[in-house]
């Protein structure tokens, strides 16, 4: 019995060591883009968003002093300075948590990405969704042009 418990403990420790505390936070800006010119954003609500991530993004942008609206995906051109799309990935470990969040700012006319940010926090370094959103948006606004 003890041996069996030992195997499970070893497996658990291995999984924790290899994946449990992984984290990443990145931001990339397309060459020639000046984010300082952006004042209004349209956050496209992902069809499969059941946890209102779009709302957190909108609120965070408003907190930063920008104008932000949300709604479904529309046919370009959008009536805002940039369009915001996102992809969130959730995992379960005792409770559900946001594992990864990618946010992309897009040109309202062409849909071409202007800037992108990504954060990944595995179980041991998990953050509340609002903090994940804040981290990704901070990464985007601090991003350097891609090389």
């Amino acid at each position: 019995m003890l041996k069996k418990l030992g195997y499970f403990l070893l497996l658990g420790v291995s999984l924790t060591v290899t994946a449990g505390c992984a984290n990443r936070a990145t931001g990339t800006l397309t060459a020639g883009v000046d984010l300082g010119k952006l004042k209004t954003f349209y956050v496209v609500q992902a069809p499969d968003d059941k946890r209102n991530t779009y709302q957190l993004i909108k609120e965070n942008l408003e907190k930063r002093g920008f104008g932000a609206t949300t709604g479904p995906e529309l046919k370009p051109p959008y009536q805002s300075d940039a369009v915001v799309t996102y992809a969130d990935k959730w995992m379960w470990d005792i409770t559900m948590y946001m594992l990864e969040l990618t946010i992309i700012f897009r040109d309202p006319k062409t849909d071409f990405p202007l800037a992108t940010g990504n954060s990944l926090h595995a179980s041991l370094t998990r953050k509340p969704p609002a903090d994940m959103v804040d981290e990704v948006l901070t990464n985007i606004f601090n991003a350097k042009p891609a090389k």
């Binding site: 990339t28 992809a87 990618t102 990405p113 992108t116």
Partner: peptide, 22 residues
């Protein structure tokens, strides 16, 4: 070509990877 995003599964039987590049 700038690879902007890669959406990949962590677990599963069928793996669908989505990619966007500018």
């Amino acid at each position: 070509v700038m690879i902007f995003s890669m959406e990949q599964p962590v677990f599963g039987l069928s793996f669908t990877v989505k990619m966007e590049a500018g």
